[in-house]
């Protein structure tokens, strides 16, 4: 899980072009949207694409979005539970 969260932080920084942000600046349980990293709805779309590109996971229910993308940890948990080999 720790390795996955570390990879996710690097991928989020690259995908969203978060200049001046390092992986260690993002806490495992820090909110990604609004008060945390300050991400917005366009970033949410980018994160959906990231899940598909990097982990071949399609978010089946859009209403799950806020829960899945709440923190790096919730994203990692969703990936672990939904990766094709685990399906």
């Amino acid at each position: 899980m720790d390795k996955l969260m570390s990879d996710l932080k690097t991928q989020i920084i690259a995908q969203l072009n978060l200049q001046d942000t390092k992986p260690e600046d993002i806490g495992d349980d820090q909110p990604l949207f609004v008060e945390g990293l300050g991400l917005d709805s366009i970033d949410a779309l980018e994160l959906i694409v990231l899940l598909q590109q990097q982990y071949k996971i399609k978010l089946s229910n859009a209403e799950d979005g806020p829960k899945v993308f709440k923190t790096v940890r919730t994203m990692a948990e969703y990936i672990t539970a939904h990766q094709p080999q685990n399906a």
Binding site: Q15, I42, L45, E46, V49, Q52, Q53
Partner: peptide, 13 residues
């Protein structure tokens, strides 16, 4: 690259 499936929204917008 992604066979017209996975398009990142930012560069399109």
């Amino acid at each position: 690259e992604f066979n017209e499936e996975l398009l990142t929204p930012t560069s399109f917008i």
